[in-house]
Design a binder for these strands. Structure first.
Lengths: 129, 129
DNA sequence: TAACTAAGAAATTCTTAGCCC
DNA sequence: GGGCTAAGAATTTCTTAGTTA
């Protein structure tokens, strides 16, 4: 997923039109259209404006998500379920989610759990599906 | 402090010359010189290469938010894990996942996180003009 | 050697207007 | 209204070579 798709996704999540968002960012809406379709790339100033507006990192917008370890390194709690720092952070993030998002996170993890189980049992079945 | 100063600082920290770093980044050393002096701005691809090389975030390079490398972490006092027992269980489960599945879980939660942030912003800009 | 500067070439983006659904 | 496209203008960057300490 590229920069354009991320901008578009964020914009649609807040139900803004290109023109409306462009106005808030003080840029022509044609430019925003070009950014979202990947035909142009905003300069750094505009990139930061977009990141600020949506309160996301530029790493996220640029798809530089490969950790960057920029995150809060908190001490391990007594309730330490994992050694994976990224998972810990995700866990804490999810704790602050709305109930709906929390539910989605739980569902997805349960889905992965089933998948993991199936993987562990791969020798049992000869073929399926 | 701008992008150029940050790049220069990182480079000097590892005792590399402009030419040596430029070679590792596969760019002309003149370009690097222009970046460091703030006369030119690297494209996103080069920016990410620089961030990867020094293992810093693009946010740090762009001066978008302080973090990474030299800087200390922001504190997040909220320590309460969660009240949601289902979420606790889900994360205990996730702790035992394979690395691949754990990564998928983290990615999905990060995705939800962006969505949550965007939604929170949504209420602020409902009507205008 | 290390770093900076200059100038024409090349590439990218911006602006303005118009088009489609 | 909402979003996309086109073409010339404007701006920025790249390349190559030369300069300075």
């Amino acid at each position: 997923m590229g920069l354009g798709a991320r901008i578009r996704g964020l914009r649609e999540n807040v139900n803004l039109t290109q023109k409306a968002l462009a106005e808030k960012l003080n840029i022509p809406h044609q430019n925003l259209s070009n950014y979202e379709r990947g035909f142009r790339q905003p300069d750094y100033e505009t990139l930061k404006k977009i990141a600020d507006f949506f309160e996301v990192s530029t790493d996220y917008l640029l798809g530089h998500s490969s950790d960057t370890k920029t995150v809060v390194q908190e001490e391990k709690t007594s309730y330490n379920v994992t050694d994976d720092p990224d998972l810990q952070i995700a866990f804490k993030d999810a704790s602050d989610f709305s109930e709906e998002a929390r539910r989605q996170a739980i569902d997805f993890i349960n889905y992965l759990k089933e998948k993991e189980k199936a993987k562990g049992r791969k020798n049992i079945n000869t073929d399926n599906d």
